[in-house]
C-alpha cells in the first residue's frame, strides 16, 4: 500500500514538472523507453538492452577481477601480520574516488589493444575493490573470539581456524562485499563511459543523446535503466545475504 502511494507521489511530481515544461511527460518517456528496448536509436543504432549488456559486461569483468583479489586479501586481513602490512597502504588509497583514477588509467592502458575498455574495466576494478575489501576484511577481523576459542580448545591451529572458522563465518560478509562492490562498480562504469567514449554502454548512450540534443526522454530512459539494473543487482544479492542466519543486520 505504501509502495503504491510512493509511486503515485513520484508520478504526480513528475507530471507537475512536465506541465511546467521542465521534464517530458512520464507517458512519453515510457513509450520512448519501451521503444528503445526493442529498437535502436537512429544515432547509435543500438537498443538500450545492448547498451546495458555492454555496461554490465564491463562491470562484471572489472568487479570480478576486484573480487578475485579482495576476497582472499580481505580474509587474510584476519592475520594481524597481513593486516599491519597492507592496511596502511589501502587506507591511503581507499579515499581516492574511482573517478579520480580515470585520467591515470587512460594513460596506463594507452598501449593496450583496447585502451578504453581496459581503462574502464580498471576504473570499475578500483570502484569495486575497496568497498568489497573493507566489508570482507571487516567481517573476517570480527570473527567472534568465541569461535576461535572453540577451535583452539579442540586443538585447531591457525590454518585450520582460517579455513574452518574465519572463511565460513565471512561468507555473508563476502556476499555483502560483492553487493556493495557491484553497486559502486556500476556507478563507476556509467561515469567512465560518460567521460571517454566506448562505442556502447548506457553512460555513453546518455552522453551522446545529450550532445545531439532534443532527447530528454532518451536520457531519462537511460537513467531509468541504470536504476533498474542497479536495483536488480542489489536486490538479488540482498536476498542471498538474508539466507545466512548468523548474518548481522547492523552491517552494511
Amino acid at each position: 500500500m505504501r509502495k503504491a502511494q510512493s509511486f503515485f507521489l513520484f508520478i504526480s511530481a513528475w507530471y507537475l514538472l512536465s506541465f511546467l515544461n521542465v521534464l517530458p511527460y512520464p507517458h512519453t518517456t515510457a513509450i520512448t523507453f519501451a521503444t528503445l528496448l526493442v529498437e535502436g536509436d537512429p544515432v547509435l543504432g543500438k537498443t538500450i538492452i545492448e547498451h546495458s549488456i555492454s555496461s554490465i559486461l564491463r562491470v562484471v569483468t572489472g568487479s570480478g577481477i576486484a573480487f578475485l583479489i579482495s576476497i582472499p586479501l580481505g580474509i587474510l586481513m584476519w592475520y594481524e601480520r597481513v593486516y599491519s602490512l597492507f592496511y596502511p597502504i589501502l587506507e591511503v588509497l581507499r579515499p581516492i574516488p574511482p573517478l579520480a583514477w580515470i585520467p591515470l588509467s587512460y594513460i596506463l592502458f594507452a598501449s593496450f589493444p583496447n585502451p578504453t575498455v581496459f581503462a574502464q574495466i580498471f576504473i570499475v576494478f578500483v570502484g569495486a575493490f575497496f568497498p568489497s575489501f573493507v566489508t570482507i576484511s571487516d567481517y573476517a577481523r570480527n570473527t567472534p573470539s568465541e569461535y576461535i576459542e572453540l577451535a583452539e580448545v579442540f586443538g585447531g591451529d591457525e590454518m585450520k581456524i582460517l579455513r574452518r572458522v574465519v572463511i565460513p563465518y565471512s561468507i555473508p560478509g563476502i556476499i555483502t562485499g560483492i553487493r556493495v562492490g557491484l553497486g559502486v562498480g556500476w556507478m563507476s562504469i556509467i561515469a567512465a563511459e560518460m567521460i571517454a567514449t566506448s562505442g556502447s554502454g548506457i553512460g555513453y548512450f546518455i552522453m551522446v543523446m545529450y550532445e545531439v540534443g532534443g532527447r530528454m526522454p532518451e536520457i531519462i530512459s537511460g537513467m531509468a535503466m541504470i536504476g533498474i539494473i542497479g536495483y536488480g543487482m542489489n536486490a538479488i544479492l540482498l536476498k542471498l545475504e538474508e539466507r545466512f542466519p548468523w548474518h548481522s543486520k547492523s552491517r552494511t
Binding site: 559486461l57 569483468t61 573480487f67 578475485l68 574495466i121
Partner: peptide
C-alpha cells in the same frame, strides 16, 4: 543446504567473470 549453495554460487560467479573477461575483450 546453505553450505553447498554458497560454494556453488561462489564458483559460478567466478566462472561467469572469467567468461565475460574473454567475451568483452
Amino acid at each position: 543446504k546453505i553450505d553447498k549453495t554458497i560454494y556453488f554460487r561462489g564458483i559460478s560467479i567466478l566462472l561467469l567473470a572469467a567468461l565475460l573477461i574473454a567475451a568483452s575483450l
